[in-house]
């Protein structure tokens, strides 16, 4: 017993070490840098909140930060809804289930770079949907969201949902298949309509799976850098910028690690602030 405990600790220790040093260590270092005068190269002179003051006075950060919430909420809700609907459709024993499952899961096998590029082409006014429909004989048809500053962020949501919905479908489908048949029989005997069974009984049973999906989607939101780069490049202007791209741009191209660190810390803080209450509630429920 004691020896096996020791072995387990030994085996785990490299992982723990890597986690502590690379994740927590670097996070602490980044936070520290954000309170210093660092710009081109780390400079450990303490500078109070100056980096944060400048960050929040930067219009581009305002746009990127707001976009994270627009993109985040819409992607999580959108992908969950679409994924769930697809899962339910397949769960109703449609013909060719294997085919649909593969087709719908396929986008996930593509990288965000490919997804972004493909959607850029689809949405580009000069070669994509708009061009196609106009050629069909509707010369006034306009769909140029990707070229409009106040709409571009929603095109990222389209692409994101398209990419992620398959994964949500797969997870939810697994959950739906795990639902006891007796429950379905009982509801049928009682004459409850199918949609109410899903909404009132089955979904609440799948709550842990929904939590898993929300976590996976949130991670996708926070790390969504490649999708923006490939699809809109943060444009038009910087209208579809996201914090991830902001941080990378500032730390590498603009050689300002002070600003990049401050932005990264705000990002981390916001994610904590957004997810902590949710997990608190979820975990407490499970504890009961």
């Amino acid at each position: 017993m004691r020896i096996s405990g020791l072995a387990a600790r030994l085996v785990l220790s490299p992982t723990v070490l890597v986690t502590v040093v690379c994740f927590y260590g670097c996070a602490v270092w980044t936070a520290y840098i954000s309170f210093t005068k660092s710009s081109f190269i780390p400079n450990y002179t303490f500078n109070g909140l100056a980096q944060y003051e400048r960050l929040f006075a930067t219009p581009r950060w305002g746009v990127a930060y707001t976009n994270m919430f627009i993109f985040g909420v819409l992607l999580v809700v959108g992908a969950l809804a679409v994924g769930l609907l697809l899962a339910i459709m397949i769960d109703r024993n449609v013909r060719g289930e294997g085919f649909f499952r593969t087709v719908m899961l396929y986008p996930l096998s593509m990288s965000f770079i490919v997804t972004g590029l493909a959607w850029q082409w689809v949405l580009s006014p000069s070669i994509g949907v708009q061009h196609f429909v106009r050629d069909l004989g509707f010369p006034n048809f306009t769909f140029d969201w990707i070229a409009q500053q106040d709409r571009a962020i929603y095109t990222l949501v389209f692409a994101g949902v398209w990419h992620q919905a398959g994964l949500i479908m797969a997870i939810m489908l697994a959950g739906l298949r795990g639902v006891d048949r007796d429950i379905w029989r009982a509801t049928k005997v009682e004459g409850i309509p199918t949609w109410r069974v899903y909404l009132g009984i089955v979904l609440p049973m799948l709550r842990p799976l929904v939590v898993t999906c929300v976590v996976l989607l949130s991670v996708a939101v926070v790390k969504s850098y490649d999708l923006v780069v490939a699809m809109t490049g943060g444009g038009p202007g910087f209208a579809s910028d996201l914090p991830g791209k902001f941080v990378v741009d500032f730390s590498f191209e603009r050689a300002n690690i002070g600003q990049a660190s401050a932005a990264a810390v705000v990002m981390l803080g916001s994610v904590f602030a957004a997810l902590a209450p949710y997990f608190y509630v979820e975990l407490r429920k499970r504890g009961q």
């Binding site: 930067t58 500053q149 038009p236 202007g237 910087f238 209208a239 603009r254």
Partner: peptide
């Protein structure tokens, strides 16, 4: 500096697209 360069870039691109 690349930092100021970046600020100008941000201004120009946001103006040109706004």
């Amino acid at each position: 500096s690349s930092d100021v360069d970046g600020q100008i870039t941000d201004l120009i691109t946001s103006y040109f697209n706004s």
